[in-house]
Amino acid sequence: MHVPDGFIDAPLSVVGGVIATVGVGVCLRGARRELDEKTAPLAGLVAAFVFALQMLNFPVALGTSGHLLGGTLAAVLVGPYTGALCVTVVLTVQALFFADGGTTALGINITTMAIVTTVVGYGIVVLLRALLPARPASVVPAAFVGALISVPASALAFVGFYALGGTTGLSLGGVLVAMVGVHVLVGIGEAVITALTVGSVVTVRPDLVYATRSYEQPLEIRHTEQAA
């Protein structure tokens, strides 16, 4: 859920803003290594893509609905730093322009939905990639698990903020069970869509998937024997 204005108290919104600013600063430094002139538009495309995916709401349980977060997908496609920046841009545009998620809660939304999802999701991808056979197709199951866990992790981060600065007085246990419960289900949907998207991109254009870069073979030039 995009946190609206007034849901988390002002001091903690500032804390969220500080965490988000530091996180985005780190990502801006890191993204310089990931991006070159050719990949800058790729980052924009990933942001547009995540934006389009976030518009697909699917019903979860009890009349609530969830939508994809896209953090793991973005991290796998363009790298963790740039991925987090892509989701940050999406959240900023949604808050300022589409009124989805509060302007003062933007720091909290960036922390939970851009930073936590990419750190957790991509961390798991890197971990699993080391365990799985060294070929590009291994990224697909890794992305599945990464996405699966990143969504409840994001919900957990939200509950953390709520515990420290929630304004609504609901019991913490109830919020924890409801948020994490719903987001385990959202995580399954996220995992399926992330894995199938990454799967089809890996099959057709593995060069567009950042997470497969470690498998790239250096270009080998073989010379034929010159006839004397």
Binding site: A31, L35, A40, P41, G44, A48, F49, A52, C86
Partner: peptide, 20 residues
């Protein structure tokens, strides 16, 4: 706002129409 974020946002707006 940092230049890289502006750049990603520019491309995002440009590509939303393409994606949709």
């Amino acid at each position: 706002m940092p230049q890289l974020l502006v750049q990603i946002m520019t491309f995002m707006f440009r590509y939303i129409e393409v994606v949709l």
